[in-house]
Design a binder for these strands. Sequence first.
RNA 1: GCUCCUAUCGUCUAGAGGCCUAGGACGGAGCCCUCUCAAGGCUUAAACCCGGGUUCGAAUCCCGGUAGGAGCGCCA
Length: 469
Amino acid sequence: MTVTRFAPSPTGFLHIGGARTALFSWLYAKGRGGRFLLRIEDTDRERSTEAAVDAIFEGMAWLGLAGDNPEPIYQTQRLGRYAEVIARMLAQGTAYHCYASKQELDQLRAEQQARKEKPRYDGRWRPEAGKILPAPPQGVKPVVRFKSPDEGRVVLKDLIKGEIVFDARELDDLIIARSDGTPTYNFCVVVDDMDMGITHVIRGDDHVNNTPRQIQILQALGAAPPAYAHVSMILGGDGAKLSKRHGALGVMEYRTMGFMPEAMLNYLVRLGWSHGDQELFTRQEMIEKFDFDHVSASPARFDMEKAYWVNHQYLKVTDPALIAPEFEWHLRRIGVDPDNGPALIAVIEQQRERCRTLAEMADKSRFFYEELSGYNDRDAARHLTPKSAPVLAALIETLGTSDWQPEALHDAVHGVAETLGLKLGDVAQPIRVAVAGMAVSPPIDHTLALLGRVRALARLQAAALKAGS
RNA sequence: GCUCCUAUCGUCUAGAGGCCUAGGACGGAGCCCUCUCAAGGCUUAAACCCGGGUUCGAAUCCCGGUAGGAGCGCCA
């Protein structure tokens, strides 16, 4: 059975690159009837926080990417297991104690760099047949190093990048346990993936250089390596690397910007992966069609404009009842009471075609739910003029007796335009500014219908007053 | 510095040696439609990093440049 995992380290929110690898992993497992597991890599006690764990779960939940393990695995809960494996390796001779101090190592690195060599551990404490090791210094707590085979080559058959060959001589003996006894990342990943039965390791391509060592450790443990898929990174729209201080946003910020989770997933899946010319995929289609044969090996930029377009496509076709809760969240966020106006679904139906985001929709729908705080200066100057005063007066008169339905309102507005010998625009625009406070709104008949008779007429009266003055 | 990765329109990409006069999508430009904003329809500009090979034939294969990137921690 296919088993994949997403294993973030809780040092911040779930960012866009992490979300995409999570999505790829989730899709790959789901598409093959497999399992997708969640694991928290919190062995770095310094930087890991509870808040970050929550933030990651929140992001995953919003995107609808649930792990198949009811409780995620925390590395810090598995310390006993790591110790056990390390003891075994020590006993087998595939790992050894190293007493070199940090200062010693720093100095070694500095010398190697000065000589323009690749910095690496020189094996001074590595046991070798016929080699005499120095006596362990007093009072020094050793680290444990993996005894990396230094002959031959390690072949990584990457599902995305193809075959990558590493010369074993390039791989030095990495530390698997610190002097305080805690295990290090490269070791924990290997043990966890092995214990969890992970068949496909899908992760960022900043890990490719770690992979040969992980394969060696696996081999030392007598386990078969999983398949690997190294996904390239996502760059900012300007082509620069995303970082905390440069455009790296948590997925929840995209919610605030007004994205639908499904749209976010759709944009993300197409960033690097393709299925012919298809741009839009339902979640089910993604599951069925996703594969690594069509994942690009090169980095991709995050294009906001395209993301907006995808979001808009979703807003246009998604069942309004499904959009409503998210829309309500946005209204409340900007301080609008969704109960003080028309039904959300009705508003969504009218606004969905003209808004790329839910944030925009909420903003443009304010006037349905709260009193006008004023008119847009430019629009008022243009449409609430002495010339439009009689138009508004005629409107108030006619609409006052109209049935308050879109069709009837449509006829009424057209009727006024005809009577006064005006183009529809000359009538509709003043109404817009009067009821919406600006010259942009859904079709005027629907706008009036949604707003309701009382509110609409009151606003027309107020506008007539302003226009006449 | 060393090791590894990457390279098609501005952006995401299609392309598995002839189907490529290089396709689609976003964005851009223009036109049409129109009560605003949108949406929609039509048209259009725009790319195979460079140089060598291999081959009857290369965007596709190989080599070398160049340019980006990643890694080289008692971080993950």
